[in-house]
């Protein structure tokens, strides 16, 4: 390249001009939605009652003390979970409860639109955590990974491995 004055500036112009041919990365949020990461640690917990034995390991693991569990003894001397609550308003999404569950009964959800007007409304109870439309995140559950939709890429394919 000739070492003319202003060549660097012209190169800068060229780079910006090339951008005009590229795809735009902006998403128009309410109409268009991004797929979050497959391993997202999002705002909610999904609980599978069939696998849960009521051992309360998650309660012990929670650094915030958000999770509240009440059990009673049912038939076959097994625990029946009467009450299972997570205060999402105080949750720090550390994932320790999911990781500590010995029976793989807790999952992170994938929803990211769970803002509420009052803090009290953020306490999720059994009904909410077992609702049918919950999507499970593959966080600490690698067997779910391949079934989930791919994350929407904001940067180019060649960087895919970083994601």
């Amino acid at each position: 390249m000739l070492n003319l004055p202003g060549i660097g500036l012209m190169q800068g112009l060229g780079v910006v001009f090339k951008n005009m041919t590229r795809k735009r990365i902006t998403e128009q949020y309410p109409e268009e939605r991004l797929n979050v990461s497959r391993r997202t640690r999002a705002q909610e917990l999904v609980w599978e009652p069939g696998r849960c034995t009521g051992c309360a390991t998650c309660v012990k693991a929670c650094p915030q003390g958000n999770i509240k569990i009440k059990t009673s003894v049912g038939e076959n001397n097994k625990y029946v979970v009467d009450q299972f609550e997570n205060d999402e308003g105080r949750c720090i999404f550390c994932g320790l409860c999911v990781e500590s569950c010995p029976y793989e009964a807790l999952f992170f959800g994938r929803s990211y639109e769970r803002s509420k007007y009052k803090r009290e409304e953020l306490i999720a109870d059994i009904d909410e955590m077992t609702a049918a439309d919950k999507e499970r995140s593959a966080y600490y559950r690698p067997d779910l990974y391949d079934e989930l939709p791919e994350q929407t890429l904001l940067i180019y394919r060649k960087h895919k491995r970083i994601l």
């Binding site: 001009f17 951008n19 005009m20 590229r22 735009r24 990365i25 128009q28």
Partner: peptide, 11 residues
């Protein structure tokens, strides 16, 4: 300028 910055701009 938003086209040049891979954005959409006011729409």
């Amino acid at each position: 300028i938003s086209v040049m910055q891979l954005r959409i701009g006011p729409n």
